[in-house]
Nucleic acid binder design. Structure first.
Lengths: 351, 351
DNA sequence: CATCTCACCGTAAGCGGTTACAGCAACCTA
DNA sequence: TAGGTTGCTGTAACCGCTTACGGTGAGATG
């Protein structure tokens, strides 16, 4: 590997000049610059990033906090790939890389502590990372909170954390949920139920309030027994749907706060002999891949998945460059109408 | 940030001793060692990885080559998340991190060249990466070939590349495909077709030969018009299925070389008024999430997805530690029987 | 008692960059 | 012509850690 010194000698200049050529090209004479560049190319020179990081005390890497929560072994992020695509491309534009930290609970290591149970902050300092991107991994909001308080620049995706140097990006869950419910109401449904996400989860609660908002705006009655809680997983959707079918005057339409739960609800409905959409209209949330594969294809509220990544990258870059912290980034959603909703049967008979 | 020097001064030892405490603990007196460790803890010391990498000329990072092929914008890796889970955990065990390189085609940069179109090898050298893990991203086998030839330790996942320091990990595709076909034959099918992956793709061709092998072993006739090619995508599965339904004596069973194509075939069959599994038995390959969601749930050949990651990590660690290069790593597959296959109708009428 | 071994530790030279500071022409201004 | 700019470049300190090498004293050996 060629070093800056070698180039300097071959060009008859000092090593400082070589460094300047790459960092402040305008301060060095055009002819010298071109000579250095040419020799660099011939020698296949690559600046040593370790040396540079050591010297400047900062690297061009962002840490990615993504651990599957050990309490939920089967958990998979619903749209990790799209997220990463957005994140990576936006980070690339700034010349930054994404480091997936290895932190396999080696708590015997120097620096592991309660405030940083798995060593992410530790790693951040060791590697002079610019910051951390936190990706929802089931339910580690508490751990995220610790990171956010650590002073390290943090941006969480779809988890509400805030701190001196921390924000998060999320969808406009309230508006998204409301649009789903409104869609059902416009089809003529008046008995609209919802299957919610886990309590305490920020997106889940925003979706509930969107549900309430739309129900109210449409002049429909609010019924406690039309709000049953799930945990975003498919199985909970099935269970919730069963409960909904057991109330008197069961709903003719259901808004599920996640596609997975919508699929679960679909299975439960089918199991109960109901047909979707004829007997039951169903709307999901997320627009993950299975939404378009399931039969019938699921009407759902689409999130801008790569947009999460892009927004997270922008936010973290802003923090690194010291821009003032702004509030959470809220991304718009979009209702994707497919085949899982039709007008209620009562209405149909009127025609 | 505390440095080694500070610890040394506080302990009244030299900085070399401090370094030894962390790298060759057995060479330093127990009392001294404990004193250093204690002070290190008090000062919240973290060794500077940049300095260490600069000094040792090696980092504890592995590069991840994962670019969505620009020629296939919609491409998504079928099981990226599981792969990453396996990769990350196995790498963690060795104290290594995964670096997702940003390489946004800045070809004006020093070091970009034809042999390294997107700058991965460049980045590998700059960061002193231990090696590269190449993840299939549509169809960049040629680019992978270049990496494999570069001398950088490379392990590809499910793409056949080999070089002085390169291997790959893949499933036992032949055996997997054969087991699928045999399953169909055992159900009584004799008109078994296959939808293949793209020509030139190693797993695709191995699956074809598994198909041939099983057909032969079961004493069934080989028919050219029962082998139609796809490209692993859903749409190609639909198109292929249409072609299969147009031959005379259309097949009663189809083995698709990917779940996505199987789903596509399912749609085509349904469009043609056929019911699955009653009129057509269908087997896929991969066992991705939609396989269990689709109606009917898809019988398929499951790959050990996290196992890919684990195996890739092992292979790359072996190369780093200089172990002899061994051949490609072949992982076993497993037939997952669900609801998309039943005996052929002809047979049924016999009962 | 001289010598050898060995465990332990310090000295110092790197690793490959960055950057504050100073030097030195050449060119302007008064 | 003295003094001040301006443009360019070199010197050298520094970033924090690793490691080859040499030195020291205690105990073992003859």
């Amino acid at each position: 590997m060629a070093t800056g010194r070698e180039i300097a000698e071959l060009c008859g200049v000092s090593i400082a000049t070589v460094s300047r050529v790459f960092n402040q090209p305008e301060t060095v004479n055009r002819l010298t610059r071109e000579r250095v560049l040419r020799v660099a190319r011939e020698l296949d020179y690559r600046p040593n990033e370790s040396a540079r990081a050591l010297s400047t005390k900062q690297s061009t890497m962002i840490g990615l906090v993504w651990d599957t929560d050990h309490r939920r072994p089967g958990w998979r992020h619903p749209y990790l790939q799209d997220l990463l695509i957005g994140l990576k491309s936006a980070l690339s534009a700034h010349g930054y890389h994404l480091l997936m930290l290895a932190t396999s609970g080696d708590s015997r290591e120097v620096g592991a502590s309660l405030a940083d149970p798995v060593g992410y902050v530790n790693m951040t300092r060791r590697h002079h990372l610019g910051g951390l991107v936190l990706i929802d991994s089931g339910s580690d909001a508490e751990a995220f909170e610790a990171f956010a308080q650590s002073g390290v620049p943090c941006v969480a995706v779809d988890v509400a954390v805030e701190g001196p140097k921390a924000t998060y990006v999320t969808s406009d869950n309230t508006a998204g949920a409301a649009s789903a419910v409104r869609h059902l109401a416009e089809l003529g449904h008046s008995r609209i139920a919802t299957i919610t996400g886990p309590p305490g989860n920020q997106p889940a609660e925003a979706r509930i309030s969107g549900y309430y908002k739309a129900i109210r705006e449409c002049g429909l009655p609010l019924r406690d027994d039309y709000v049953v809680s799930g945990d975003f997983y498919r199985a909970s959707g099935t269970a919730a749907m069963r409960r909904l079918l057991a109330v008197d005057e069961p709903p003719t339409a259901v808004f599920a706060a996640s596609d997975e739960m919508a699929v679960g609800a679909l299975l439960a409905a089918r199991g109960a002999g109901l047909r979707v959409p004829e007997d039951l209209a169903l709307v999901g949330f997320d627009d993950i891949e299975i939404a378009s594969v399931v039969e019938p294809a699921l009407t759902t509220v689409a999130q801008d998945k790569p947009g999460f990544g892009v927004a997270a990258a922008k936010a973290i870059m802003a923090m690194i460059t010291g821009a003032d912290r702004e509030g959470p980034v809220i991304l718009p959603t979009q209702l994707v109408v497919r085949d899982s909703c039709s007008p209620p049967r009562e209405r149909l008979s009127v025609f």
